[in-house]
Design a protein around this nucleic acid. Structure first.
Ligand SMILES: [Mn+2]
Ligand SMILES: [Mn+2]
Ligand SMILES: [Mn+2]
Ligand SMILES: [Mn+2]
Lengths: 151, 151
DNA sequence: GTATATTTGTAGCTAATGCTAATTTTTTTA
DNA sequence: TAAAAAAATTAGCATTAGCTACAAATATAC
């Protein structure tokens, strides 16, 4: 009985580095995306987005939200007034729209693949930020394609 | 022409928070996983894992590597001696093995789905850390399943 | 064997994400 | 309307990840 063949899978260092750099870039923006998505949802559902509600949906303390929101304001994604609801700028709305759309595609994709709904939602929250446009297109195709439906 | 139907997709706050908390948990460990994976590769290929080679593959400066490696040592994943190669502990080897395996499954999955190789590698580097065991199983199934091959 | 080049380490900085504790403001209730 | 409850802010702390600039050690070349 021979040892596992162990496939030679040598990748060029620069290419590998590219992957890690892209991952870091994604991490630099993903939290902002999640926040504006949540804020957008709250605005749709309740007409306002309050710090405590955002905190409940992101799973952090309200202090963490306050701090992040001030960075979002600095970056032009939201507008704030002390003790008042947070609102989205045009840019914030656009980012939210795209994030929500991508999020939904990832969830639908995982569900169609056979992942249970709960896990699909949980995993999608992380996966969504690392899906390039070409991969997103592949996900879309798979969701649309009747061939891959539950047979 | 009516506006888009806009599906009501209201998720319970706690469930949504769970997703974000899982994402944060993943981010807390993923960098360590990528480092030990790279270190393991270097040890296999060259018999030693040097700071500068790790830096080239992760795409950061050697200073960043030195600092992270000392945290990895603190956490029992690697052993170090000044100006010498870095080696893996038993735990480090185990983490590397699992990470590499999962990484490969994600890459194979994306490729089988029709994502170009370069994008598959790049995206996998981020996606891998957010794939739960049930989703990983779904990926494996899809890769094995002849039905989904290029027709 | 010395000089040079490469590699590794250290010091010190910025920025982000998270927290608890204490304060202030707003909202609700009595 | 005054007291109590809820919500938001501020201050201050810890941790991590990244960087540049500089110093020390190791490896290579002559
Ligand atoms: Mn997300
Ligand atoms: Mn991530
Ligand atoms: Mn990775
Ligand atoms: Mn990896």
């Amino acid at each position: 009985m021979s040892k596992k063949p162990k496939v030679k899978r040598v990748v060029k260092p620069e290419l590998q580095a590219k992957g890690h750099m892209r991952t870091r870039a994604a991490h630099a923006t993903e939290l902002a995306e999640d926040y504006v998505e949540v804020i957008s949802d709250l605005l749709d559902e309740h007409g306002e987005a309050r710090v405590s509600d955002i905190a409940a949906r992101i799973g952090v303390t309200h202090v963490t939200v306050t701090k992040k929101v001030s960075l979002l304001a600095r970056d032009g994604l939201v507008t704030t007034k002390p003790y008042r609801s947070i609102f989205l700028t045009d840019l914030g709305r656009e980012v939210a729209r795209r994030s929500r759309e991508r999020h939904q595609i990832v969830v639908d994709f995982l569900v169609k693949l056979g992942v249970p709904k709960d896990a699909a939602h949980t995993d999608a929250e992380g996966i969504e930020h690392h899906v390039s446009s070409v991969t997103l297109e592949a996900f879309k195709r798979f969701v649309k394609d009747e061939v891959n439906g539950a047979s």
